[in-house]
């Protein structure tokens, strides 16, 4: 524990900016993936434990598109759409058949897909890890110095882009007809169905959107992370923690929780270098004890 270092850091603008930008980047990448998980849970009431594997699939699809076209943006787009499509097939072909089943059956089905996808990427892309996509040429420039802090330009892009996605998601949920239907379905799917809305289509669409977000997160993360089978595991765990802290099903909650965890990890690395991961779990425990419905979740239920 090094509270003096943490105090020093909070007192100097360069360290404060530096750690904040790092925390924002970690947090917003986490939000992209976790928002998909929480969206699916909110509407369908199922926890897609294979969500981390969708993230992995996004990374691999992006890598493949990059290898074929050498275009970073196209790679990200292809990964997002590809995983979205995979999500629909997964939902229609498998998950939709166990919505009414036991939670245990849903978990087992997801677990089966985690194992299948982990093996599948090995069969297609080999056992050895793949190198990251690299960052687009436009961002190949020396880092900025803001208030004495080093800020990689590409991280600003990730932060900006993820924020845009968050805003778009918020606008979709609050301002569009389908967003309103989605929120209504969260409250009372039977009534929505009774009003003549095709809930099967709605569910498939939500699953596609949730999966698309996982694929998007995977592709963006792959810009600087090496890609390997099993890489989704730690991500689904983190996303789950974000979902629990933010409140199951709450996208706004996931946004706040992801930023909270990003900052905890960033500043925790200065103050508690040996307990950074521990802090994340402490945060989750506190929320579970003091506010079990999560920061922005609905109480009761």
């Amino acid at each position: 524990m090094d509270l003096a270092a943490l105090g020093d850091c909070l007192g100097t603008s360069s360290c404060l900016i530096f750690q904040t930008v790092g925390g924002l980047k970690i947090g917003l990448l986490m939000f992209l993936v976790a928002s998909g998980l929480t969206l699916i849970f909110g509407v369908l009431g199922v926890i897609n434990f294979a969500h981390g594997s969708f993230y992995m699939l996004g990374a691999y699809l992006a890598w493949q598109t990059m290898a074929l076209t050498d275009n970073f943006y196209l790679a990200v787009l292809a990964a997002a759409l590809g995983v979205g499509l995979f999500g629909v097939l997964f939902e229609r072909g498998f998950m939709s058949r166990v919505y009414r089943g036991d939670v245990l059956v849903q978990i087992l089905l997801c677990y089966a897909f985690i194992l299948i996808l982990d093996d599948l990427v090995i069969i297609v892309w080999g056992e050895e890890f793949l190198s990251s996509l690299g960052i687009p040429d436009a961002f190949h420039r020396p880092p900025l110095f803001v208030g004495g802090a080093i800020v990689p330009v590409f991280h600003l892009f990730i932060i900006g882009f993820s924020t845009l996605v968050a805003v778009a998601l918020w606008l979709f949920m609050t301002r569009t007809k389908w967003g309103k239907i989605t929120r209504a379905a969260e409250q009372n799917p039977l009534m929505v169905s009774a009003l003549g809305i095709n809930t099967s289509l709605l569910f498939a669409g939500i699953f596609a959107l949730g999966s698309l977000l996982a694929g998007l997160g995977g592709a963006l993360a792959a810009s600087e992370r090496s890609i390997s089978s099993g890489m989704g595991f730690s991500v689904v765990l983190e996303s789950f923690i974000v979902t629990v802290i933010g409140g199951m099903g709450s996208i706004g909650g996931a946004f706040v929780a992801a930023l909270l965890i990003g900052m905890t990890r960033s500043f925790g690395a200065i103050g508690f270098p040996l307990f950074t991961d521990g802090l994340m779990f402490v945060l989750m425990c506190l929320v579970l004890v003091l506010r079990p419905q999560g920061l922005m979740g609905r109480s009761g239920g």
Binding site: I26, S234, I270
Partner: peptide
């Protein structure tokens, strides 16, 4: 996967 906190 992410070394940002270590790098900082």
């Amino acid at each position: 996967p992410d070394y940002t906190q270590i790098i900082t």
